[in-house]
Design a protein around this nucleic acid. Structure first.
Lengths: 205, 205
DNA sequence: GCGTTTTCGCTACGACTCGTAGCGTAATGC
DNA sequence: GCATTACGCTACGAGTCGTAGCGAAAACGC
């Protein structure tokens, strides 16, 4: 048990601007080179820092890309549009817009693939990317229950299972549409999808 | 226009057993090393062939892994279980079982990530992996319409859109559940998912 | 048989990336 | 001033890449 960290204990502090520059350079490299051809040396050069600085802050390529991609999802929000259907359509369109960006496409799927063999990496993805998306689902569900569009769920375990299911269906469908099928998740598609999802939730209650 | 290829025109024919050995070695390497640490030299050694032989048959790591993973999906079938719900549950469980295997997990997502920057690779994935899955959706839909569980769709364009939507929802949800959420798509989950999907399809008709 | 053609296994190669170590310097707290 | 940490830079062995060149093996037409 060490005494609590007082920001930086001693010595020269890390340059905070370097973090932002490195993450931005990582995203740029993802766009231009893609995952497999991205090298840490190249990222360091783009960011204007030494390669050793990069290795002092991140364990490797996987962790760096997770952080770089995670920032893309910061803009996700769930404005109240008045109905469950409109709320879902809005957030799904936001999610689709992020996934349409090339740095998200090539980066996200690659780290997910790597995470199948690295539990620590999976946990990093979960806490820094999935967690924020999950909050939106919980928020939307609570709103819909308040409006009476969804029945209240007394059993917390059952409620958790349902939220997990919704999350996998929504995120999975958008990702699969965008990356595997290679087609845009545009308004028409999102509307059809939302109709099916809401109908399914209502009928399975 | 050259004369039709009579199997092999002249010279020593390629050893057909080598293809199978290489693809099996690729899957084994995916299990033990994962995508990023898989090297073609290592695969060649495992398969008992020279590295140059491997490069004569495949353009690179991406194409090789696509073919190796595609074989995993050969076993997918859609036996008639009497109802749409049971048909869906059956095929989703099969799909989940394949995705649970480590060589599918790490291989499939990695090539999908690479395909975001390589149209030829995306087409290869579509024709050798996605196509077979899509056939099952069409087959299941036709069966359900014959049973009267789903209404016939007169407009072929609308029908195609619906099939695309179903496919993205089913495959996407299973993939997201297995790879991102990191939980098993077991019978309980599949039953809940099927209930939502069927309810959604029925209500949105 | 005999020449042609293609594949195969093997070795070797330059180019590149990896992750780390070492060093001198800069920036902070005590 | 002194200890401590971050930084930029260089250099390094190790590993992988994809290709070229070689001789031997296995099919074909004659």
């Amino acid at each position: 048990m060490q005494s609590r960290t007082p920001a930086s204990r001693a010595g020269r502090p890390r340059d905070p601007a370097a973090d932002a520059a490195i993450l931005a350079a990582t995203r740029q490299a993802l766009v231009e080179l893609g995952w497999s051809k991205l090298t840490l040396g190249d990222v360091a050069t783009r960011a204007g820092v030494a390669k050793t600085t990069l290795y002092r802050r991140w364990a490797g390529k996987n962790e760096l890309v997770v952080d770089a991609v995670a920032e893309l999802f910061d803009e996700l929000e769930l404005p109240d549009r008045g109905s469950l259907a409109d709320d879902i359509e809005g957030v799904v369109l936001q999610f689709a817009a992020i996934l349409a960006r090339p740095e998200a496409k090539s980066g996200l799927m690659a780290v997910v693939a790597e995470a199948t063999r690295d539990d620590a990496l999976r946990e990093r993805i979960r806490s820094s990317i999935v967690e924020r998306q999950m909050r939106l689902v919980l928020q939307g569900r609570a709103r819909a229950q308040k409006r009476g569009e969804l029945p209240p769920e007394p059993d917390p375990r059952e409620a958790a299972r349902t939220v997990d299911l919704i999350f996998d269906v929504v995120a999975g469908a958008v990702v699969h549409r965008t990356l595997v099928s290679g087609k845009a998740a545009d308004e028409e598609w999102v509307r059809s999808f939302t109709r099916v999802l809401i109908g399914g939730l209502a009928s399975s209650a």
